[in-house]
Structure formats: structure tokens, C-alpha cells
């Protein structure tokens, strides 16, 4: 009985002592934080994707409240939440169109020639260092899916034929996949832009055809057929200038002899 009292008193005493200490420390050392930071943080997507270039949403919220970065710092948040943050902080926000990632390559396993068997680290960065990976095309997709790993929004997946497929609904336009791709075949474009040359190959026609079935050979047909002047060919590779071509989904898509020009929205349907 006596030892019980000693145990209870000593343990209780220690507990009490430290509880008081923690309470005091809590009161004395409390960090004063602008309550707005918490509110802004709640409105941000909370994916900590890093598209703003800061360590996470919390850091971005802090700088937004301090006024060091604008609402546009977060490319991911939708217009609705940007409006609310804007109201909270007294900033105005122009509703803009979101960007969507586009994979500018069709060199899936069906189309591209295979030159080797790669058995190293299963990342694009790894395979590109080993003689440029398994696939013949030195410009196209490597197929190891670094872009799928880096996506915080579950919006890009590796398709069956070894090409990443973007979910245009889920994509928030953060640009992480474009950043990580060692071949730079992923680009960010406005959602309304639909027609693209899905190829980056700059080889001459014959060499390019050997690498991949669906390749731009620089034949100039698109330049001739499109009257808006939106298509140009440089280094045996065509590209679209959407400011001239606009959102017109029609025209040279079906004229391209190698089917390298595609309407990405229609193709996915």
C-alpha cells in the first residue's frame, strides 16, 4: 500500500511538473501565425505537387498572404478556389483557360522500331543514358513512365502500347510531367487547342520512317493544304502555331500521309 502511494505521488508529481512546463512553454513560445495562411492553405489543392516552385501548398499560401506571389503562382487551383482566395486577400483574379499536357509522340510499341532490350533502372532518365533506350527513335517517348510517377493528380497513365495517356479532365496543368520528360515530348497547351503534330523527330524522311511508322517526315503537305499559315516545317519537322491556326479542329489532320497530325480530343474518343 505504501509503495502504491509513493508510486502514484512520484509519477503524478513528475507528470504534473512536465504538464505545467509544457503549458508554460506553449503559452510563451506560441508562434503567432496569420490566420489567413491557414484559410488560404485550405483553399489550395493540397497536393503539394510543387508546380509553384515552392516546397508545398503551405509555403505557397504563406507567400500569397504576404503578397510576395500572386494567385497565378498556383497553376493547379481551379478558378472557383482562386476566386475565393482572391476575395480573402483582396486580389483580383482573371479567369483563364487551364493548360493541359499533350504527349507529342505516337511511337508506341505498335509503331516504333525496337533496337535493343533494356534491362537497367526502369526510369526514362536511366534508359536515356544507356544509348537512348530501347526504341529506335532518338526523339520520341522512352516508355518508362517517369511522367506517370511524378503526377500528383493521377492524370497521366502508361498505356498498353507503352505510351503515356493524359486524362484531359484530371490534368491540372501543373507541368510536372513536361518538366521531368528527358526527351521534352510533353508540352503544356491550352485546353481548347486540339490539333497537334504528334512527333518530334527531326531526321530526314527515310531515316525517320525507319525509326517509326507514325512520324513526321517534313513533306510540307500540311503547309500547303492549310491556308491559315499555322503550319511550318523546320528541320524536317512540322509544328502548329495555334495563334494562327486557332482552334480549328479540321483540315490537315486527314491529309498527313503518315498520320502524324492528330486532333487529340477526337483521337481519344
Amino acid at each position: 500500500m505504501e509503495s502504491l502511494i509513493y508510486a502514484v505521488l512520484s509519477m503524478g508529481g513528475i507528470g504534473l511538473f512536465f504538464a505545467v512546463l509544457i503549458t508554460l512553454a506553449n503559452a510563451k513560445l506560441k508562434v503567432e501565425e496569420d490566420p489567413k495562411i491557414e484559410l488560404v492553405n485550405d483553399l489550395l489543392p493540397g497536393a503539394n505537387c510543387g508546380a509553384c516552385g515552392l516546397p508545398g501548398c503551405g509555403a505557397c499560401a504563406e507567400l500569397m498572404v504576404k503578397g510576395e506571389v500572386g494567385l497565378s503562382a498556383c497553376p493547379v487551383a481551379d478558378d472557383d478556389s482562386k476566386d475565393q482566395i482572391g476575395k480573402l486577400l483582396g486580389l483580383s483574379h482573371e479567369a483563364g483557360e487551364k493548360d493541359v499536357a499533350v504527349v507529342l509522340c505516337q511511337g508506341g510499341l505498335k509503331n516504333v522500331s525496337i533496337k535493343a532490350d533494356y534491362d537497367g533502372v526502369k526510369t526514362c532518365l536511366g534508359s536515356t543514358l544507356v544509348s537512348g533506350g530501347e526504341r529506335q527513335c532518338a526523339y520520341g517517348c522512352l516508355g518508362n513512365g517517369d511522367c506517370c510517377v511524378v503526377c500528383s493528380f493521377d492524370a497521366i497513365h502508361m498505356g498498353e502500347d507503352g505510351l503515356p495517356i493524359v486524362d484531359r479532365e484530371k490534368c491540372t496543368g501543373c507541368g510536372k510531367c513536361a518538366e521531368v520528360c528527358p526527351r521534352d515530348i510533353i508540352e503544356m497547351h491550352k485546353e481548347s487547342h486540339q490539333v497537334f503534330v504528334l512527333c518530334k523527330n527531326q531526321d530526314k524522311g527515310k531515316a525517320a520512317k525507319e525509326a517509326c511508322k507514325v512520324v513526321c517526315i517534313g513533306c510540307q503537305i500540311c503547309v500547303k493544304k492549310d491556308e491559315s499559315g499555322g503550319f511550318t516545317v523546320k528541320n524536317f519537322l512540322a509544328s502548329v502555331d495555334h495563334s494562327k491556326y486557332g482552334s480549328n479542329p479540321e483540315l490537315p489532320t486527314d491529309k498527313c500521309p503518315t498520320n502524324a497530325i492528330v486532333n487529340v480530343v477526337r483521337a481519344s474518343e
Binding site: 507528470g15 512536465f18 504538464a19 509544457i22 503549458t23 506553449n26
Partner: peptide
């Protein structure tokens, strides 16, 4: 939450 770690340890 301020005393959760001491409590867990006890």
C-alpha cells in the same frame, strides 16, 4: 496534441 508524445511514452 501538445502532450500527445509524453502521453504515448508513458
Amino acid at each position: 496534441k501538445e502532450v500527445r508524445i509524453p502521453t504515448f511514452i508513458i
